[in-house]
């Protein structure tokens, strides 16, 4: 009986899948919270991005899904990096942060969001690249 079950359910572990499904909304909320409060509390883009990357990695661990398009994610990450370099060049190096001090909060939150999504995409790409390499 046990051997038969092992043969049919190599791909899916019900405990892991149920627990991961339960944790999903909490992971999303926790990651977004860490990113959005990065300028007030400990945390920030890199940490929140790493938490958000757990979403895709956990989904792969549970379902062995291979519908993640690495090339498209890579292109999105490049665009995000371009914005990430352009915004500080204009705002900080152009000393707009001194002229318009009320924009500083918006700038910090926006930069943390950009860094968070970029790091989440990057870590996901790294893990999926190795996973697809091992799957071949």
């Amino acid at each position: 009986m046990i051997e038969q079950r092992d043969e049919t359910s190599v791909q899916e572990d019900s405990i892991v899948s149920i627990i991961t499904g339960l944790l999903y909304p909490f992971i999303i909320v926790f990651g977004i919270y860490i990113i959005l409060n990065g300028h007030d509390t400990p945390g920030g883009g890199f940490q929140g991005g790493a938490i958000l990357a757990v979403l895709f990695i956990g989904r792969y661990l549970v379902a062995h899904s291979d519908d993640f398009d690495i090339h498209r994610a890579h292109n999105v990450e490049k665009v995000l990096l371009a914005i990430l370099i352009l915004v500080p060049v204009v705002f900080v190096f152009g000393s707009l942060s001194r002229s318009y001090p009320q924009l500083n909060q918006v700038y910090l939150v926006f930069m943390n969001l950009l860094i968070g999504f970029k790091v989440a995409l990057g870590l996901t790409i790294v893990v999926f690249r190795y996973a697809f390499f091992e799957d071949r």
């Binding site: 291979d66 993640f68 398009d69 090339h71 890579h74 870590l123 790294v126 690249r129 697809f132 071949r136």
Partner: peptide, 19 residues
């Protein structure tokens, strides 16, 4: 991080898309 991914895409065998 982007540089690491570019290096992985170039030096790991395989095309990097779905299996």
């Amino acid at each position: 991080l982007l540089t690491a991914i570019i290096g992985m895409n170039h030096f790991l065998p395989g095309t990097g898309s779905r299996p």
